[in-house]
Design a protein around this nucleic acid. Sequence first.
DNA 1: TATGAATGAGCATTCATTCAT
DNA 2: AATGAATGAATGCTCATTCAT
Lengths: 210, 210, 210, 210
Amino acid sequence: MASSNNEATARGGRRRANGGGSARRAQLLAIAAEMFATRGYSQTTVRDIADEAGILSGSLYHHFDSKEAMLTEILREFMGNLLQEITDIAEAESSPRAALDGLIFNSFETIHRVPFAVALYQNESALLTTTPEFAFVTKSSLDVEKVWLGVLKAGAKAGDFRADLDPGTTYRFIRDAIWSTVRWYNPRGRLQHRALAEQYLEMLHGGLLT
Amino acid sequence: MASSNNEATARGGRRRANGGGSARRAQLLAIAAEMFATRGYSQTTVRDIADEAGILSGSLYHHFDSKEAMLTEILREFMGNLLQEITDIAEAESSPRAALDGLIFNSFETIHRVPFAVALYQNESALLTTTPEFAFVTKSSLDVEKVWLGVLKAGAKAGDFRADLDPGTTYRFIRDAIWSTVRWYNPRGRLQHRALAEQYLEMLHGGLLT
Amino acid sequence: MASSNNEATARGGRRRANGGGSARRAQLLAIAAEMFATRGYSQTTVRDIADEAGILSGSLYHHFDSKEAMLTEILREFMGNLLQEITDIAEAESSPRAALDGLIFNSFETIHRVPFAVALYQNESALLTTTPEFAFVTKSSLDVEKVWLGVLKAGAKAGDFRADLDPGTTYRFIRDAIWSTVRWYNPRGRLQHRALAEQYLEMLHGGLLT
Amino acid sequence: MASSNNEATARGGRRRANGGGSARRAQLLAIAAEMFATRGYSQTTVRDIADEAGILSGSLYHHFDSKEAMLTEILREFMGNLLQEITDIAEAESSPRAALDGLIFNSFETIHRVPFAVALYQNESALLTTTPEFAFVTKSSLDVEKVWLGVLKAGAKAGDFRADLDPGTTYRFIRDAIWSTVRWYNPRGRLQHRALAEQYLEMLHGGLLT
DNA sequence: TATGAATGAGCATTCATTCAT
DNA sequence: AATGAATGAATGCTCATTCAT
């Protein structure tokens, strides 16, 4: 809980940027996350971020090693927290069905809480799957998938879920439908994340047909 | 065949690039589409495309006005065809349920046939919704949405589909689940687009629970 | 004689800069060599070179991959030619003594002909021995040393040269004395390279004492 | 001991950095000299020096006015000491020949004792002769040259040295051969500075030929 | 003495685009 | 249709230096 952003110290040996978790650092990271998410990572310049923060672009390098390091840190924290949360949920819930519902509620809540990180994860897939530096994202995604698949398979075995559906494909359909909502979810709109989750669950549980 | 790629001539009056539909042009566009889709639009340089085509980057400007014009043309053709197809389907089918199934089969088939255009549409949302030049994409999307919503509402009215689900939200959930498969669909894999559509329909029709 | 500057094509596979030996290229390289030599490599900016050539800095990259590539090319050609020349001399001359005199005359003539390349070789030793990309310079230097040492040892054996002097150390003393003259040699001065070589030979042959 | 490192106080009037000769200061200067010499002055960053000293780069400015001031101080002390020493030697020795030998022994011993300062003097000639702030180095070099020339001329007059060699050119050949050894002299190697000096003298005195 | 945050100028390099040939 | 040389603006990043604490 207190860890997670000391790669700079841990990795290269020689640290250049301020690795500690200062308030300024978190603030800059929040600005970067929002801009990366809304304009796209490579459409966002280091100067854009600095301008928004009210400093000069070069000053960002007092806090971070590179533009890429900022994205890395944002995604690392996001993926880490996500995995932790869903693992807890999958373990805590009594039935596979309750676990699945919990995972889904958590997903929509995550979109509500950290929309920019989710959008990044969702929109920058070309970058994230191509650049070796971001391989950890793919790895974390697989860890997340394992947890969901565990729940889905347990539910099929227990008779909660239909057994004629392929769990892997089902997981992808569910995952994509949920995470994609980050593109149109309005946190101040009519449908709040809880209600949206209920809408989705309603459809998922019983299907579309009468 | 009669329409769609003569904007360069039609619009500005300035006719620089070859507006006609030559074979070379189509070939270059295909190369661009694939690279834009796999690396991302702004991660792809004009030189990347030219290298792949075996010409120099400046020579591309004999065929196209700009890099952006290439993306515009790819998306314009894609959106145009898509709208045409789904309109035909929605009108041709007898029942809302058959129409919905038809739309879904068509979507998966589209992913199979023109994966790069779909990936572009799916991955470049930050660019597409931000840049005014791409407003036509959002406009076309709304036209597409209208067709789907028409089918969904008709189905709810006809008693085919459950009436307690909000059609707008349902549409988005379905749309996102389907189009997102472009990221993991393997055209040479075990699950071909038709089988994949059936998997999705199975889940959508009856729901996940037993 | 017609070869030597096609590393760009030979190496990476994907060439970016114009690898061919155009006249413009040679001209730019000459400008770079002079500036690198007089101001120092890292004190010379790419803009300095471009300004001197009357183009914009970015345009240099049409011809060369990088600033470092320019230095590499200058040094590679210099070292290549040097090795070729001294090998020819060592082989052509009849006696070790004639060979040594030939090598020395050639050295002073080289300083006269390509002073900037020599100065670079002489002044940028910190860079050249530290940066792995310039390892080829050290390697070539060793090849050159071999030729000189061959002559010196043959001369000692033949009784031309004193046998009580360590050939390795002798070579270094001679080499350094000669190449260092590039710092003060004036090609339009009183003492032309031939006269300067004679001065040095006079001292080297008979010593300073009466 | 009484002079040499109070320019900061003496010159501008602006007294920012600690002008006194504290131990910390000397330590920092030693670090800087080594890095300047091995990597090159402009390849060495202020942060490099600070890192090596275990402080932050900004903290260096408590001790020195600027990076350039560090180099100035290193060279000023070196040149000052050198001039003092050779003046003493030239005055103390009885004959020109003994004086010349003394100067040469002293040079090799200087390379052994303060290799980094010598390397700086030897390698940064482009910077030293170009930048007006370092004009004092050129001036000191001329003072040094005067002493050597005095010995050489006296030796020629006295019949110790051959009179057919131009003293100025001879001086340069000797000087360059000696100082250049700093690039390959190994203080822990087989040939210690005294032995190396003897090797050189052997060759210089009697020449290479038998 | 030292920190840590920031400045401001500059740097090598990239890249879409132009245009004469 | 394509080349090859160049533009001009921007980009990520570096680095000597400042200064309040």
